[in-house]
Design a protein around this nucleic acid. Structure first.
Length: 420
RNA sequence: GUGAGUGUAGCUCAGUUGGUUAGAGCGCCAGACUGUGGCUCUGGAGGCCGUGGGUUCGAGCCCCAUCUCUCACCCCA
């Protein structure tokens, strides 16, 4: 059998790639507006980075990483997310030396070994930002506003914004205990995975989608009464700032995210047009991560959005695909002498900055014009023996059918004028 | 990793209760004045019917396995 691409990967073909360009351009433009600088980190890292950064007990580290041993006997992992590598680079290159806050963004492929389904692939593309060095809640508001702005700019109308706080090492342990205590005599009513969560990560019980679990946990206390003063204040101010920035949001006390490194603010963006995997993006604050990866204690916050899912949401909401770039001029020639002249003309026209094409298949004039039409060229330049004898070429307007004879020396200038 | 569905020309799909050389539309190529496109007409190329086994006189149709894709679970972007 023919070799196919590995499972869960996609080829982005001409005709689709224009959508990607559109999204990428919007992203870069917004990052400029919001004052973020791009950082490009390697696609693979030492496995240890992710184990320490994301957390040993997370699904990603436990079962979703593309990990292999290289020829130097190092354990290497294809990056499953962007935050840990950016933190690593931030420390390695001492970017903090330039002064706080440091605002970075990245855009590129991530890898997770999962069963593919709608909007979920083994290689997928994320855009994310990270801000280091500020614990101010206005930064949290910015990290929520930027993706919202992006969705709006791309015409995704149903992007939903949910926020929550999961406290900090000061106050979270007490809440964890409170949560466990309140469920102690009902553990057996939870689904099997929630029974595991009860021991390992009780906060995750809150966002289980099982109807039965939802019922069991319906009357459980929220974290809000357990927050320390700092976390309480942070969350309150975040909401004030979001309102000030004109961002619509919902507070969801059950929103908990999958990475161990989050503290205080967590948030998620979703779209109902996506299907079961409805997350467009998400993020949160990670005030302990930098230290975990080996740096000085440094607050941080960031988000990641899935480009594949943005594209999916755009398509499902009927966004038109941008037209592929076409050529402007097609040069048709008949015979070897004319082909020689065509090569010269083509070179001149292109150097004048006009996208141009010629026939490389030795086709009949008729077929060449047909090809010109298909390439959506606006003008055809026709060179044959008759024209050559007069040192000229026929320039034909393909929309109107009008054509004129122009001397070879003036074809480029003529086209430049005509295309204005 | 678990479950369900799916797989016939480049694309979208037909293919009757298993029966001879597997079809259509679109696309592609060519011709309809041996130098003029878009429309129309005519013709042509292009499928070991996902792959490997099996049942049968005979399999695109039935059975098994395997892979792909799709959808869902888990989890997430």
């Amino acid at each position: 059998m023919q070799v196919t691409g590995p499972r869960g990967t996609n080829d982005i073909l001409p005709g689709d790639v224009e959508r990607w360009h559109l999204v990428e351009e919007r992203i870069r433009s917004l990052c400029r507006i919001y004052g973020y600088h791009e950082i490009r980190t390697p696609i693979f890292e030492h496995t240890e980075l992710f184990v320490r950064g994301i957390g040993e007990a997370t699904d990603i580290v436990e079962k979703e990483m593309y990990t292999f041993t290289d020829k130097g006997d190092r354990s290497i992992t294809l990056r499953p997310e962007g935050t840990a590598p950016v933190v690593r680079a931030y420390l390695e290159h001492k970017l903090y030396a330039a002064g706080n806050p440091t605002k970075l963004y990245y855009l590129g492929p991530m890898f997770r070994y999962e069963r593919p389904q709608a909007g979920r692939y083994r290689q997928f593309t994320q855009f994310g930002v990270e801000v280091f060095g500020s614990r101010h809640p206005a930064v949290d508001a910015e990290a929520i506003a930027l993706p919202v702005h992006l969705y709006q700019a791309l015409g995704i109308k149903d992007a939903r914004v949910q926020i929550n706080t999961i406290g900090c090492p000061e106050c979270r342990p007490a809440y964890r205990q409170l949560l466990k205590d309140s469920l102690r005599d009902r553990v057996d009513q939870l689904c099997p995975s929630c029974q595991r969560r009860y021991e390992r990560n009780p906060l995750r019980l809150l966002d289980c989608k099982e109807e039965s679990c939802r019922r069991v946990t319906a009357d459980v206390p929220t974290i809000y009464d357990s927050l320390c003063e700092e976390c309480r204040d942070h969350f309150d101010r975040l909401q004030v700032y979001l309102e000030a920035a004109g961002i619509d949001f919902e507070v969801n006390p059950r929103l908990v995210r999958g990475f161990d490194y989050y503290t205080k603010t967590v948030f998620e963006f979703s779209s109902s047009s996506l299907g079961a995997q409805d997350a467009l993006g998400g993020g949160g604050r990670y005030d302990g991560l930098v230290e975990e990866v080996g740096g000085q204690p440094t607050p941080g916050i960031g988000f990641a959005v899935g480009i594949d899912r943005i594209l999916l949401a755009m398509e499902r909401q009927g966004a038109a695909a941008p037209a592929p770039d076409g050529v402007k001029v097609f040069i048709a020639s008949l015979g070897e002498a004319a082909t020689l002249a065509a090569v010269t003309l083509l070179s001149q026209v292109r150097r004048a900055g006009i996208p141009a094409e010629m026939d490389y298949l030795g086709r009949s004039l008729k077929a060449q014009l047909k090809a010109a039409d298909k390439s959506r060229a606006r003008y055809a330049v026709i060179v044959g023996d008759a024209e050559l004898a007069k040192e000229a070429a026929v320039v034909r307007n393909l929309a109107t059918g009008e054509q004129a004879e122009v001397s070879l020396a003036e074809v480029t200038l003529h086209l430049k004028e005509a295309l204005k």
